[in-house]
Design a protein around this nucleic acid. Structure first.
Length: 467
RNA sequence: GCCCCCAUCGUCUAGCCCGGUCCAGGACACCGCCCUUUCAAGGCGGAGAUCGCGGGUUCAAAUCCCGCUGGGGGUGCCA
């Protein structure tokens, strides 16, 4: 059975790049009818926090990713210790007593000479007696993996193809820190092997780590899994997408009023394109059905907020059911300080969902449906000041006395007024709009009249007339 | 510096494996027109890529080969 995983470290909010990695890994597992594992990589006690972990799980769930198993590396230290011991015993690893300062010195010297830095292997040659003596004396030590000389590690990446990296690129590397915790490269291998991961799908920044990991797999006698390295996501300036590019976490987008389905869908289109040309909107179920790792691009992609916005708009106006849309919209309304019955909101959105692209933007645009009293803009005030407008509003009040305010009826009335007062259509609508919304642009006035309770329409016009 | 990855409209991409149907197709953004009470949305149309550059191979190259350049990533007792 296919097993894939997503292995984030809880050191911040879920980043868009990681989110896409998670999505691809998830899609692959589901497509293959396999298992999807979530593993929290919290071996770095300095930077990992429980709060970030909770946020991570929340964001992942919000995106619609569900996992079959969940692990935390911080709860598996005994396991890593055991496997480190095995490597020590088999001679694949050895204790290293070099201090951080000494290593720093080595590194600096290498840099000065302009040669690539590699650990000198100073502690490699320590005799058994020397090691025992040093340990007894209480000297802190790390455990290093003994890298075989001259080996070229080769693997077939499912996305990048054939990759060969010489171990000359790196020296013996640390697998257990002096505080006894495992490093990333070591914990990852032990976990992936023990959890039965068959496909390691992750960002391409991990390519240089892969040979180190393959070496560990082999030393431990584990089966080496298949690797798939996804290209990174870039910002507008073509550097790796990061905080300085603005909103880069899933949470940012959630708070700005983007829908999980839209973000999911959009992220899929970065670096992957569906076999069916010409279509871009896909449900999660469809994506699971058609997603194939082989179709993933090997070149990095620039994230486009513009296109995400557009796609979010598509989801708002035509993909989501009205009820789902209302569910998503309500919290944004409340947060903006408006109170409204769900049923009323539903009637509003039914008529207006095609006019905004994010929920936040929707709240802003639909304010006239929810505010008690409108605020007039400069332009609106000047429209309301002129005689024609007053005449229009008075006529309108007169005509709506004994009628309902359906959009059709309002349009008919507007025409009547236009004819009777001999003014332009624009004058009629401008006056109505200014009095009812306080602005000169925005939602359709006919729809507003239709949905807004009649007494509130009258109240607003009366108030405008009193100016 | 060294190692690795990448290279089609501004952006995401199709096509590349199996050369001709591609004077390169779609989407976002942009421009124009239509619809219209405004702003959006929608409809229609337009502009936009000598397929990074230079050499080959071939009757024929975006597609195959070589070199170069550019961009990105890595180079930790971070992940």
């Amino acid at each position: 059975m296919v097993v894939s995983r997503f292995a984030p470290s809880p050191t911040g909010y879920l980043h868009l790049g990681n989110a896409r990695t998670a999505i691809f890994s998830y899609l692959f597992a589901r497509h293959m009818g396999g298992k999807f594992i979530l593993r929290i990589e919290d071996t770095d006690k300095e930077r990992s926090t429980k709060e970030f972990e909770e946020m991570l799980l929340e964001d992942l769930k919000w995106l619609g990713l569900e996992w079959d198993e969940l692990y935390r590396q911080s709860e598996r230290f005994d396991i890593y210790r055991e496997y480190a011991q095995r490597l020590l015993e088999s001679g694949h690893a050895y204790p290293c007593f070099c201090t951080v300062e000494e290593l720093e010195e080595e590194r600096k010297r290498a840099e000065e000479k302009g040669v690539p830095y590699r650990y000198s292997g100073k502690c490699r040659a320590l005799s058994k007696e020397e090691v025992e003596e040093l340990i007894r004396s209480g000297r802190p030590y790390t455990i290093r993996f003994r890298v075989p000389d001259g080996r070229v590690v080769v693997f077939e990446d499912l996305i990048k193809g054939h990759i060969a990296i010489s171990v000359d690129e790196f020296g013996d590397f640390v697998i257990v820190r002096s505080d006894g915790t495992p490093t990333y490269n070591f914990a990852v291998v032990v976990d992936d092997a023990l959890m039965g991961v068959t496909h390691v799908i992750r960002g391409e920044d991990h390519i240089p780590n892969t040979p180190k990991q393959i070496l560990i797999y082999e030393a431990l006698g584990f089966k080496v899994p298949a690797f798939a390295h996804l290209p990174v996501i870039l910002g507008e300036d073509r550097s790796k997408l990061s905080k300085r590019h603005g909103a880069v976490s899933v949470r940012n987008y959630r708070e700005e009023g983007y829908l999980p389905e839209a973000l999911f869908n959009y992220l899929c289109l970065l670096g992957w394109s569906p076999p069916e040309e010409g279509r871009e909107i896909f449900s999660k179920e469809e994506l699971i059905r058609i997603f194939r790792l082989e179709d993933v691009n090997s070149s990095p992609a620039v994230f486009s907020k513009e296109k995400l916005r557009w796609m979010n708009g598509v989801y708002i106006r035509e993909v989501l059911s009205l009820d789902r849309l209302v569910d998503e919209f309500m919290p944004f309304l409340e947060e903006a300080g408006y109170k409204a019955e769900r049923d009323y909101v539903k009637r509003v959105l039914e008529r207006t969902r095609d006019s905004f692209e994010t929920l936040r933007e929707g709240v802003e645009r639909l304010k006239p449906f929810f505010v008690e009293e409108v605020k007039y803009s400069e332009e609106a005030l000047s429209v309301l000041e002129n005689e024609t407008s007053r005449a229009v509003l008075e006529a309108f009040l007169q005509k709506i006395q004994d009628t309902d305010l359906s959009a059709e009826r309002v349009k008919a009335i507007a025409k009547e007024i236009q004819r009777e007062l001999n003014v332009k259509a624009k004058d009629v609508w401008h006056a109505l709009r200014a009095s009812l919304t306080g602005e000169l642009e925005g939602v359709g006035v006919d729809i507003l009249c239709d949905v807004l309770p009649k007494e509130r329409v009258i109240k607003r016009i009366l108030r405008a007339l009193e100016l």
